[in-house]
Simulated scan of single mutants.
Amino acid sequence: MPAFLPDLSVILTFALAALVLAVTPGPDMALFISRTMNWGRVHGFATVLGALTGIAIHTSLVAFGISVLIVTAPAAFWVLKIVGALYLVWLAIGAIRSGGGLLVSRAAGKQPSFAQSYMTGLGINLTNPKIALFFVTFLPQFVSAADPAAAGKLLFLGAEFVLVSLPVVIAIVLFAEWLTTTLRERPWVSKLLNWSFAAVFMAFAATILLAEGRK
């Protein structure tokens, strides 16, 4: 068995944990839905690809020990969380302003490029404390620090997380596309969804900022 391959029990346990995180509502899930409803499945999948790239980056940081700096330097992690909260506020504003790019109606604003949708997905996961905390604090629990193959196993688990998440995010994008087709002719529903997305992003931003304020 290759040295980078964890035990089967570890693989199965981690798969369950990854599935729970994947189906937990969060700003990334709201973003996948809003992008798809606005610009179609191509941009929904572009956003997903960006988010999964963010996961790959988090995994690499953990595997090669760079994320230890965040854990040992609380100020650095605090900055990450504040940046994440501000990014969510920016997305919330974009959801309700004219031509903000998150509106359900395609005619509301200029269509973003594939690269822009990708970078939006990348940004929301790189600044998402839920993802950062999962990989910095939880992922290392599945390997031993004394294991010479620890880095390889961490990378394997990161790839496993992506594979487990894929069916979930693909289903989310396809559902959002179906929902758009069903509701596009009802303007009041579109407006309600825009404000709902804004509320989701603002709620997560407030949670982050208030949690920091209590410390």
Rank of each mutant, 00 (worst) to 15 (best):
A115P: 11
A115F: 15
A115H: 09
Q116C: 08
S117W: 02
M119G: 09
M119A: 10
M119H: 11
T120I: 14
T120A: 14
T120C: 11
L122A: 08
L122N: 11
L122H: 09
G123T: 12
I124D: 03
I124R: 03
I124A: 00
I124H: 00
N125D: 08
N125Y: 00
L126Q: 13
T127M: 12
T127N: 05
T127Y: 07
N128W: 05
P129T: 07
P129W: 05
P129Q: 10
K130D: 08
K130S: 08
K130A: 14
K130H: 12
I131G: 09
A132V: 08
A132R: 03
A132H: 06
L133G: 07
L133I: 15
F135W: 03
F135P: 01
F135T: 02
T137Q: 11
F138T: 15
L139E: 02
L139K: 00
L139H: 04
L139P: 01
P140N: 11
P140H: 13
P140G: 11
P140L: 11
Q141H: 14
Q141C: 04
Q141G: 04
F142C: 10
F142I: 12
V143E: 03
V143K: 07
V143W: 01
S144P: 06
S144E: 09
S144T: 07
A145D: 10
A146Y: 05
A146N: 08
A146Q: 13
D147I: 06
D147M: 05
P148E: 07
P148T: 10
P148I: 05
A149L: 13
A149I: 10
A149F: 14
A150N: 10
A151W: 00
A151D: 08
G152N: 06
G152Y: 03
K153S: 11
L155W: 11
L155E: 13
F156S: 01
F156T: 04
G158T: 01
G158K: 00
G158V: 00
A159G: 02
A159T: 02
A159S: 01
E160A: 08
E160H: 02
E160L: 12
F161W: 06
F161V: 01
F161Y: 10
V162K: 03
L163Q: 01
L163K: 01
L163G: 01
V164M: 02
V164T: 03
S165F: 03
S165D: 01
L166A: 09
L166E: 04
P167I: 06
P167C: 09
V168Y: 10
V168A: 04
V168S: 04
V169Q: 07
V169C: 02
V169P: 00
I170H: 02
I170L: 09
I170F: 08
A171H: 06
A171V: 10
A171G: 15
A171I: 04
I172H: 04
I172D: 04
F175A: 15
F175W: 15
F175P: 05
A176W: 06
A176N: 03
E177M: 11
E177Y: 09
L179N: 10
L179C: 05
T180N: 14
T180W: 14
T181H: 14
T181R: 14
T182S: 12
L183S: 00
L183F: 08
L183Y: 01
R184T: 15
R184P: 06
E185N: 14
E185S: 14
